[in-house]
Write a protein that binds this DNA or RNA. Structure first.
Lengths: 138, 138
DNA sequence: CTTCTTGCAAAGAGTTTGCAAACAA
DNA sequence: TTGTTTGCAAACTCTTTGCAAGAAG
């Protein structure tokens, strides 16, 4: 919960007014690396004694995505999960336990050659399979 | 609508019993390369005079995904779109017009190095941006 | 004041499910 | 028969929205 001035600066740099709820959410997302769902974010912040509505969680996360602070990790038709946008990484999704792992990856090795692409603003890579932990469990 | 024997073989090879509705849907997906939504699939097949319910479209597509004939392309929280699983290709999504382009890509250049990955069964790459057609339109 | 943000509850979209009828083996 | 597939409608989940109250400048 420290370092709010730094967070404020980052948000203002993206054109977002730093209200209390927005700071709370941004701070939470900065420190959460498990790609949480709206439900989890809401539950965690509520448990910490912060008052904010689920609608505000939805609306604020959507705002953050639009402003380029977060990205949505949408798997099939389940709940959306959110991910702080840092340096590029891929995602590995375990089909047994549902866990999402970050995978370091060098996107530039891909050499995308595609004439219909005017401009590219975001790149996402997903691997699906079974993680080592689940494999060992069998 | 020809070639049903071939389709039947492919479906049986994946452990799917070839009912009429399933053949219709599989045949449709084989020949549709625009990543259609359930709504579009249902509308197109209905317009062709085929009787099948939307629930069956949903259930059958889900079956096909589970059996590895199709993949879901789920963008944010909009409708799911379906894609026949052929040789690897990435997707480029235009954020203006919503069109999804197929992009040839060599996945093996990525050299995924990730110790927690036990086994990998599927790889998806998404690029987002603005397509050339939309850029030229401005 | 004036504008932006929040929160509740209701609406909405897309998808899944229960169950009975139809079909296939 | 015995098991599988279909289809309708209802239920469900996740997300968005309208609007009034509240906070900020």
């Amino acid at each position: 919960m420290r370092n709010f001035e730094e967070l404020t600066k980052q948000m203002e740099a993206k054109g977002i007014k730093p209200s209390l709820q927005r700071l709370l959410l941004f701070n939470y997302m900065q420190n959460c690396h498990e790609h949480p769902t709206v439900e989890k974010i809401y539950a965690d912040l509520s448990a910490q004694g912060h008052a904010l509505s689920k609608a505000t969680v939805y609306n604020t996360l959507t705002l953050f995505v639009q402003k380029g602070l977060l990205r949505i990790v949408q798997l099939d038709h389940s709940e959306a999960r959110y991910d702080i946008l840092t340096n590029d990484h891929a995602h590995f999704i375990c089909q047994k336990c549902g866990m999402i792992y970050d995978v370091p990856v060098d996107f530039d090795q891909l050499h995308l050659r595609f004439d219909d692409a005017g401009s590219v603003s975001q790149r996402d890579i997903f691997y699906r399979g079974v993680c080592r932990r689940c494999m060992n469990r069998e």
